[in-house]
Structure formats: C-alpha cells, structure tokens
Design a protein around this nucleic acid. Structure first.
Lengths: 192, 192
DNA sequence: TAAAAAAGAATGAACGTTCACTTTTTAATA
DNA sequence: TATTAAAAAGTGAACGTTCATTCTTTTTTA
C-alpha cells in the first residue's frame, strides 16, 4: 500500500515535470537529467517507470489526452439532445483548454510536431469518439451539416487551441463573453 | 555575380533541407550534419551563412512567414471592398496551406513550440497587419463583428491549420467543395 | 597569386542509458 | 515480537555516442 502510493506519487511528479519542461523548452531540448531534477529523483529512477525517454513522452501524452477527454465528457449524457450535448461538451473543452492550460499546451505541442510515436497519436485520437457519435446523431436528425468530421472539428474545436495559445503567451486575455461568442460562432458554423 | 548566385542557391538548399528535416523529425532531432548532407554542403559551410543552428531556424521561419504572407496578399488590393478582400485573402491563405504544405507545416510547428526565438516570433506576427487592417475597416463599416482580432483569427484562419495537418497526415483529402464550405463557415462566423 | 569560400577532421560538451552499489521494504523465522 | 534474509526501489557515477561548433587545409574565384 505505502509502496504503491509512493510509486504513484513519483510517477506523477515525473509526468508533471515532463509537461512543464517540454512546454517551456520542447521535448528534445529537455534532458532526462532536468526532468529527474525537477521531480526530485535520480535519472536512473526514471528507467524504473519508463522504458525510455520516448516511452515517457508517449505515456505522458496518452495520460494527458485521457484527462482531457474525461474532463470534456464528464457532464455529458448520451440521452441529451444534440443541441444540449454539443454545447456542454464544447464548453467543457473550452474550460479545459483555458484552465488546465499546461496540459492543453502540452497536447498542442504533441499534436503539431513529430515528438510522439504514430501509434500513440492514433491511440489518442480514439478518445474523441463520443463527440463524433454526437455529430453523427445530429446529422441523422438533420440538425448538423452533413460534412466530414474533420471539417466539423476544424470549425468548432480547433479555434480553441489558437485562443489557448494566445492567452498562454499573454497576447490576449480570454473572458467569459469571448467564450460565449466563440461558442455561438462554433454552433452557427455547423448547424443546418 | 557568379559567386553571389551560387551563394543564393546554397542558402536556398539549406533552407529547403531545414524545412524538410524539421517537418519530419522536429528541430532538435535534426542535426546540423543531416541538414548539411541533404543540402550537399559541409557542416562548416552552414556557419558561413548562419551564425548558429538557432539563427538558421529563426531565419528560415521568417523567410517562410514572408513567403506565406506575400502569397496571401498577392491579389489583394487595398481599395477592394471588405467582403471581396476577405474572400480573396482567406482563399489565398487556404491555397497556401494546402499547396505549399511543407512550408505551412513548418510554420505550424514553429507557432506551436518553443523552437524559435521570441523576437523572431514577434517579427513574424507583424506580417499579418494587412489582414488586421482589413478587419478594422470591416468593423468601421459595420460589416464585421466588433470583436478582438484574436477571435476573428481563431474563427476564420486557425481552422485551416487543422485541415492542413489532417491532409498532411493522410487522414483527410481536402477538395474544392470543402474549401468553399469552410470559407462560408468562416465568413458567416465573423460577418455582422 | 591573393583572397574568399568550402571542405573535412577535430574538439569539447551534453546527452540517454546502464551499471554496480546502497537503502528501503517485505516476508519469513524463531 | 524481534531478527534477519530476500526482494524491490532507488541512486550517482560512468559509458559510449552524438551533437554543434571550430580549426586547419584545400579549392575556387577574380
């Protein structure tokens, strides 16, 4: 019990340190030695938890992606109407990107670079299935435009990544009204 | 004359090799030796054209950013109507991202990671001024929603980066009709 | 032939990973 | 319950490799 708890805590420290350092310096400019130092651990200890540096970043990616989708769909129920469901999920996604910005920033970097393995990337994509199902239902009901999921995602979700980045860089402070505006724009662009 | 021409060609080769390799491996996983090899040049020669590896990537970023905005605004005239101007610029941006996808991919990586210097990043942003001016004019004329440039950019331009990425990864093949759909969604989301 | 450009070899620093060892935890024994 | 042996977790130093950059020599240019 105590052993396991300690292990989980150490692994968590390693995950947090990786996110922090990769956000600030990029994956390849983040040496194992620095991750170890920030997590108060010996470099060798990292290899008790992860096979390699690559395995570390793959696992952190999947862990964060899982946290992201868990957050996004937490208040969503499958029996909601499409309109209500989309609003709830969209706003949870917006919330996550703005409040858990370290994790969101990390995901953005992974999604836009070749740092994680292709298999981990594909694994991460699967987590979005509930949103794709929701869209399918909306299209079946004649509520949502009959266009590709990629277009729907581009119109509604991808703008949030850009806003998160500008906020993170201090260029723009996002307020409640911006979220509401952005949500209306997102919904308008996919509703029939 | 011959000397200068040769230099320009070598520098171009270096720029192209950098884009190619950074796209596939990321900046820090791209050694100078590989860039040199791909450009048919000695590693030492790179230091005749660039101060350092960092200077190289900064310069490539600014060069590509310049090519991007030159392309985006090539057919745009300041005396166009806001409606016409926006359509032309938006579609040129879409064109660039889909046709010059290597360059667009490189920009996406630079814009989402800490690989380039802050000063180069700020320098790159300035190139978008004509689009911001166009939006300002549209807002003055009561045609475009009176919201922050960052929101306008998020709604209209940032979806294109996502579509470019999916196309680049072979997940989605973008056709003419998608561009038209996306343009309509973009315009609808910012027009008053 | 002098100067500029380019090349390849050399260098020192930094990296990921491993190794030999120590400390801590667990389990067994009496 | 106290003692101790086995196992697990953790460590710092060291290894071999790779990297960006520099140095020395060769080639090209004018």
């Amino acid at each position: 019990m105590a052993k396991l708890q300690k292990s989980i805590e150490k692994k968590n420290n390693l995950v947090q340190a990786t996110i922090e350092l990769v956000n600030n310096n990029g994956f390849h400019a983040t040496p194992i030695s620095k991750i170890a130092k920030m997590a108060n651990v010996s470099p060798a200890t990292i290899y008790l938890y992860f096979e390699s540096k690559q395995d570390l970043v793959n696992q952190v990616y999947l862990e964060v992606k899982e946290a992201f989708t868990a957050y996004a769909f937490e208040t969503y129920k499958k029996d909601m109407s499409v309109v209500e469901g989309f609003e709830i999920v969209w706003k949870r996604i917006a919330d996550f990107k703005l409040k858990e910005c370290k994790q969101a920033l990390f995901l953005a970097q992974c999604d836009n670079t070749p740092i994680i393995d292709e298999t981990s990337r594909e694994e991460g994509i699967k987590h979005l299935q509930p949103l794709l199902d929701l869209w399918q239902r909306g299209q079946d009901e004649g509520i949502i435009k009959p266009v590709s999921n990629y277009l729907l995602y581009a119109y509604t979700i991808s703008p949030l990544a850009f806003l998160m980045l500008t906020q993170q860089r201090g260029q723009f402070k996002i307020e409640e009204k911006h979220i509401e505006q952005a949500y209306q724009a997102a919904w308008d662009s996919i509703k029939l």
